[in-house]
Design a protein around this nucleic acid. Structure first.
Lengths: 340, 340
DNA sequence: TTGTACGCGTTATCAC
DNA sequence: GTGATAACGCGTACAA
């Protein structure tokens, strides 16, 4: 194994090229500030020979710019977060930034610690997809730009990128209604101040109110155990005696819980109880008769988030923007038994 | 919104406490080197008042230690990688290290760039779950410890943590055999020099040889399109005229492809063709009659990888270790039609 | 156009 | 015990 080949420093390059460090630095940073072509040549060669790359650490220390962006996700296990992450990371990389990822593993009390850690590494801005228990505030307080994804933070008036929750819920509910389901249940994780959950519930209740002659429904916001969920589904079907019952699940995690409950109850997806879930996944088409979904434009959400941030990093100081992207309906057997 | 509160520096603390920077530094780093209790008190108070935290950047610059670990994954979309990542990140964090994640998005040519980027941020070591196209070598060349997860790199003799592929394949094949399947197919992505794929294929062929009186089988290593996969499955079933046919898929991605093919062909999982996949997923129990799997101890794999690295970071210089963890069988309907 | 000298925030080595 | 001081690798006034 070859030994510790210490990284070449700017001093090494300077020596090799027979110039001063300042000259090398200038060559690297502002090539426009014309240096004699001959010197430039010499430096260029030296850089190539030594395989020199500037130390971002030292650069960050000197100018405060680290070319680092902090990305905090509540739960990396959630495919939604990963998909958004991919889009954001790609956009940041294209702009010459490196993303430092911090995963909370659903321990929201670690949020402040995460921000602090990232802050200490001089990240220039944040993309936050977290619970928002007053942690993003720390970031904003330091004057670093912040973009929120999917979840608003109380008292934080910054750029926000998200699925258009109202549109997505309306799309789902209207589809269910069109498919002949009349008794609806929105299943979500406990609201707990998470804006997307709250918005989806509100949109759902609003839809129900607006269509109360044709359909009725209610919300189940809980992390309740299996027994409780089974009970809720039984009750739902009970209520639907005259019509047909269906569930809208507010994300992929909940969708899987509903599927598990249906399996326990021995009910057929679509036939016994309809189901449509927000969040498209790779497995949606293959579970039972296929699970209907509303796909989020996750890659695009991530890209937009990154764009907002980069925008501000380049100095544009505009009013906080809210970017809402529409979901797309994927109809499958779980909301249309005729399909299988 | 409150303005740019610049981070407090060690100099600020020193001034506030009426001591020198050196004293503050000593207080922070080696508290053992006794300082007068009175001074220690003063510094402690000043640190608290100013909410001072050392700048990892400056520390890294000075001592070369960044408390950063570079983690490169081939594809963050792969749940396996994410699960390993979680385990590793947790262990690193517990040891006071921050993980910098780099996702290749399956563009293996970016591997070298990733290592370079991470290297420039002075990461102290690497955990690599990548194709291994001679990139880890860069890392090792710099004398930084490297741990490989799941995939060996040619010419890189370092710590290696992985599923025991032979055990996992034997477990799968034996189970299929016990369940009455006699014509087996191992479906994998193109081998392409990826050690885990190669090992799984080899273990499979070895199993077939060792049990050739009871069972026969072959490998399908391809990223072939839908038509080709369908064709391969038809051929498989053809060969199994006298007995029953089953597929072992070498990871979750391939499992989903097989499921899709079965759906296209209108065949029943388990009854028409058996299936068992390496990699347990959250959806396995709910696709068709449930998909049998071999779960990898992903969290543990990540933890072990981190431990190996931290070990060397603390100076232990031992011979490269190979840690193989066993898989666990989850029998479901896809390999045991009686279950549903 | 190019080089010198200083400072970014730390830590380590010396004196005191 | 404690305080100057130099250095880590870099960027940039300033002088030349």
């Amino acid at each position: 194994m070859i030994k510790n080949t210490a990284r070449a420093t700017i001093a090494d390059v300077a020596r090799q090229a027979g110039v001063s460090k300042a000259t090398v630095s200038r060559f690297l940073n502002h090539r426009d500030t014309l240096l004699s072509a001959e010197i430039a040549e010499r430096v260029e060669v030296a850089v190539a020979q030594l395989g020199y790359t500037p130390s971002p650490m030292a650069q960050a220390l000197k100018r405060g710019r680290s070319r680092l962006i902090g990305l905090v996700v509540a739960d990396i296990t959630n495919p939604y977060s990963v998909a958004v992450l991919r889009g954001a990371e790609k956009a940041c990389r294209a702009a010459g930034y490196l993303v430092m990822l911090f995963n909370l593993g659903n321990e929201s009390q670690r949020e402040s610690a995460a921000i602090q850690a990232l802050l200490s590494y001089q990240v220039e801005g944040f993309i936050l997809n977290t619970m928002g228990y007053d942690a993003g505030v720390d970031a904003a307080r330091c004057g670093k730009p912040v973009v929120l994804v999917d979840r608003l933070h109380q008292g934080l008036d910054v750029d926000f990128v998200s699925l258009n929750n109202k549109q997505a819920i309306d799309l789902s509910a209207q589809h269910l209604l069109d498919a002949g389901y009349t008794e609806l249940l929105l299943a979500t994780e406990p609201l707990g101040g998470v804006s997307s959950r709250i918005e989806r519930s509100a949109a759902f209740m609003s839809f129900i109110r607006d269509h109360n002659e044709k359909v009725s429904g209610c919300c189940l916001a809980s992390d309740a155990g299996a027994a409780d969920l089974d009970q809720a589904l039984r009750a739902l079907r009970e209520r639907a005696k005259v019509g047909r019952a269906a569930v809208i699940s507010s994300n992929a995690v909940v969708t899987l819980r509903i599927v598990a409950a249906m399996a326990r109850l021995g009910w057929q997806l679509g036939a016994d109880v309809g189901l449509i879930g927000i969040d498209e996944t790779e497995w949606s088409p293959y579970v039972g008769p296929g699970i209907s979904t509303v796909s989020q434009p996750t890659g695009e959400l991530g890209r937009k988030a990154a764009e907002c941030l980069l925008d501000r990093l380049q100095g544009r100081d505009v009013a906080p923007r809210t970017i809402l992207l529409p979901g797309v309906l994927n109809v499958r057997g779980s909301s249309d038994p005729s399909r299988r």
